[in-house]
């Protein structure tokens, strides 16, 4: 047995699993999305793309995902930067705090937010009592609630992606920049940010793809009125049930995410090749 076949054998379980559990369902979904009563049809796509209701869902999904990604980056970058500057003990503590949300069940975590954000919850109460918002102010079942809940879940992905890159930056570079006339903020802008860019991009892609395809958190915090694409797919499957239309929506989501991923893979691939 030569090295090649040995490697192939070792990779086989993984390839089989990937094929059966990933490529097969995807292929089936693609087929389903273009099948109608009389064979091949694009009717499901036409229906989705010509209905303002569904276009609105698509737009909301993209808009919220971008917003969540941007907020994650705005919080994640300074957090990761601080983590590289503190001692090892404090860093470990911060890492634990950051990844703690990932260790709790999505349902528990989301119910926690429902308690905090509901009409009589602590957050709206506090805001009303301090007079920052009017009496009718509500957070539950708004896009804001979805954003808050999602940022909490996705922050670790962003923070850890950036942290990985930041820890590899030579601290002497920042010192050198300071001796060359950069203030602290200029150092961040001209040295740290450009060098951390690969981490920020990788974290952003993770955040964007995960939030675009997320379902439980937006559904529970946004309610049925404010739907995102994943929730709409779920509804098409369970309520109607209209499998081909659900498949068409899933394909749109899938292709949308691919469109974001491909330039990134090309860019990083070009750098290594």
């Amino acid at each position: 047995m030569n090295d090649r076949t040995e490697n192939l054998l070792l990779a086989l379980p993984g390839i089989l699993l990937l094929g059966l559990a990933f490529f097969l369902p995807i292929a089936q979904m693609l087929l389903l999305s273009i099948s109608g009563p009389e064979g091949f049809t694009l009717a499901h796509f036409v229906r989705f793309l010509s209905d303002p209701y569904y276009l609105n869902i698509l737009w909301r999904t993209v808009r919220l995902s971008v917003l969540i990604t941007v907020i994650c980056a705005l919080i994640g970058f300074p957090l990761a930067y601080i983590m590289t500057k503190v001692g090892p003990k404090l860093r470990l503590g911060l890492v634990v705090i950051v990844i703690l949300p990932l260790m709790t069940s999505v349902v528990v975590r989301t119910f926690g937010w429902m308690v905090l954000l509901s009409r009589s919850g602590i957050v709206p109460e506090l805001l009303r009592d301090t007079g920052l918002v009017g009496r009718t102010f509500a957070l539950m079942q708004t896009e804001a609630a979805i954003v808050i809940g999602m940022v909490q879940v996705l922050l670790p992905f962003m923070t850890l992606s950036i942290l990985g890159v930041l820890t590899r930056i030579d601290g002497k570079l920042e010192e050198a920049a300071r001796t060359m006339g950069c203030s602290f903020l200029q150092t961040i802008r001209t040295v740290v940010l450009p060098l951390a860019l690969p981490g920020i991009v990788a974290g952003s892609l993770l955040c964007f793809t995960l939030s675009a395809s997320s379902f439980v958190t937006p559904n529970l915090l946004g309610g049925t009125r404010i739907q995102v694409l994943a929730a709409s797919i779920y509804k098409s499957v369970t309520a109607t049930p209209d499998w081909p239309f659900a498949a068409a929506q899933a394909v749109i989501l899938f292709v949308g995410i691919l469109l974001v991923l491909v330039p990134y893979i090309k860019l990083t691939g070009a750098k290594h090749g």
């Binding site: 030579d170 002497k172 570079l173 010192e175 050198a176 920049a177 300071r178 001796t179 060359m180 006339g181 950069c182 203030s183 602290f184 200029q186 040295v191 060098l195």
Partner: peptide
């Protein structure tokens, strides 16, 4: 702070911006 001292420093590791 260093940026207000009008100095230049050369580091052992050179610290060129990659």
């Amino acid at each position: 702070p260093p940026e207000k001292r009008d100095i230049a420093m050369m580091f052992q590791s050179y610290a060129l911006l990659p």
